[in-house]
């Protein structure tokens, strides 16, 4: 083997190893970045989320019941009715078991309401500030265990 052939072999090996190192380094870095994207840091998320939520300035003139879902069964003797109706809204919750009223201080409201055995047909009425006509929603909640 000539001297030039040995030099060519050595240079080929060196270049191959160098390129291999570059490929391995690039692959490892790419995997690290992908792992970081698929498993976000909870601390970072909790810091970032509030900054992208715009401040609530809309005046709600509707009634949204967020819980419970109508048509579901409940196991306790009361149910927490939660929703959004806007601030300073008169909320009237009615069933055959009870009437309850409250005036909201914020957009959301929550009220513990008693349930009777069987069907509970509950009507939630919201009189927004300055309105004499209510927005109404009906809920059917079933309690079947005494």
């Amino acid at each position: 083997m000539t001297k030039e052939s040995i030099i060519a072999i050595v240079l080929g090996l060196v270049l191959g190893v160098a390129v291999a190192f570059a490929v391995v380094f690039y692959t490892v870095q790419t995997q690290k970045e992908q792992n970081t994207q698929t498993q976000p840091d909870a601390t970072v998320a909790s810091v970032l989320v509030p900054s992208v939520v715009p401040p609530t300035v809309t005046v709600l003139r509707s009634l949204e019941i967020t819980a419970p879902q109508s048509g579901t069964t409940a196991e306790g003797k009361t149910v927490a009715i939660r929703g959004n109706a806007g601030a300073k809204t008169l909320i009237i919750v009615q069933s055959a078991a009870k009437n309850q009223v409250l005036t909201t201080e914020q957009d959301s409201f929550s009220i513990d309401f008693p349930l009777v055995l069987g069907e509970n047909a509950i009507t939630v009425s919201a009189y927004h500030e300055g309105s004499v006509v209510p927005v109404q929603k009906k809920l059917y909640i079933y309690r079947l265990d005494p």
Partner: peptide
């Protein structure tokens, strides 16, 4: 020979 060796090492890696 130089290219063959380089490609072989690269492929193995």
């Amino acid at each position: 020979l130089f290219l063959l060796l380089s490609l072989t090492v690269l492929a193995l890696a």
